[in-house]
Amino acid sequence: MDKLKQGIEQMQNHNYEEAAKLFTEAIEENPKEPVGYINFGNLLTHMNDYERAERFFNRAIEIDNTAATAYYGLGNVFYEQEKYTKAQEQFIQAVQQGLDEADVHFMLGMTFIHQEYVKLALPYLLRAAELAPDDVDIQFQYGLCLAQNGQIDQAEQVMSGVLQLESQHSDAHYNLGVVALHKEKATKALEHFSKALEINPEHMLAAHAKGQVEQALNE
């Protein structure tokens, strides 16, 4: 097995020093090959060493400016530091270089969400949701974005889908409660808020909403 594969395995097993050693050897053996730098960059990002990670991704891009995963990695470096505009630029580059995976579309959507551009986020989260129908986080964020864009029926559908994937998803129950309130179905809303609290007794938003609905129903 080659050193890059071994390094990735070590990284997945949290043996970071061993992974770094293998990636270094791979780079020394093939200094003109961007993949070694990309893997090392991913490792450094994982270890929150963003400054060095950035240098490795940039080196990979110098060697091959069409290396889509290098732009994706660089985007993650900026995203982790909450530099969302910079992250966005890199994720767009990754997509333009042919990376059409759920993760890159999801991260791109999330950069817009963090900047409160919910309309701009929607097409990217939709694409991510299409590519990863079984990913709970992606489906949930897509559902949330639909709701924020006023597409309530679609949001309800997607949130129900989230519960199919993970029945104990307290935030999905909370959001379905909000949808039910929007549709003036107070009893149904109460059921969802109660379920959210049953799953997560610390769910402040659900507790607050449940209290308000109960008060309204008692009046």
Rank of each mutant, 00 (worst) to 15 (best):
M1Q: 04
D2G: 15
D2A: 11
L4P: 01
Q6E: 14
G7R: 02
I8C: 00
E9P: 00
Q10G: 00
M11Q: 12
Q12L: 07
N13K: 07
N15H: 14
E18K: 11
A19F: 04
A20S: 09
A20N: 10
T24F: 05
E25N: 00
E25M: 07
A26C: 04
P31T: 06
P31R: 05
K32V: 10
P34S: 11
P34Y: 12
V35F: 07
G36E: 13
I38L: 03
I38H: 03
F40H: 09
N42K: 05
D49I: 08
D49V: 09
E51L: 05
A53M: 03
E54P: 01
E54N: 08
R55I: 07
F56I: 02
A60C: 09
E62Q: 14
I63Q: 06
D64K: 13
A67F: 14
A68M: 12
A68R: 12
A70Y: 04
Y71G: 03
Y72W: 10
L74E: 10
G75T: 08
G75Y: 11
N76K: 13
N76Q: 13
N76L: 15
F78L: 03
Y79H: 01
E80T: 07
E80M: 14
Q81K: 10
K83H: 12
K86W: 03
A87G: 09
A87D: 09
Q90C: 14
Q90L: 04
F91E: 06
I92A: 13
A94R: 00
Q97S: 07
G98C: 03
L99P: 02
D100G: 01
A102W: 06
D103Q: 15
V104I: 10
H105N: 07
F106Q: 02
F106N: 05
M107I: 02
M107K: 10
T111P: 01
F112L: 11
F112I: 04
I113H: 05
Q115G: 08
E116K: 09
Y117T: 00
L120A: 14
A121C: 11
L125W: 09
L125Y: 09
L126P: 00
L126C: 06
R127E: 13
R127N: 07
A132Q: 04
D134N: 15
D135Y: 05
V136N: 05
D137T: 12
D137A: 10
Q139D: 07
Q139M: 09
G143H: 04
N149A: 13
N149Q: 08
Q151I: 14
I152T: 14
V158E: 01
S160V: 04
S160W: 01
G161L: 08
G161Q: 12
G161N: 14
L165P: 01
E166H: 02
S167A: 15
S167K: 13
S170F: 11
L176C: 09
G177P: 03
K183L: 03
A189W: 03
L190K: 13
L190I: 01
E191R: 08
H192M: 06
H192F: 02
H192V: 06
F193V: 07
L197H: 08
I199F: 02
N200Y: 10
P201R: 10
E202F: 00
H203R: 02
L205I: 02
H208I: 10
A209K: 13
V213P: 08
E214W: 00
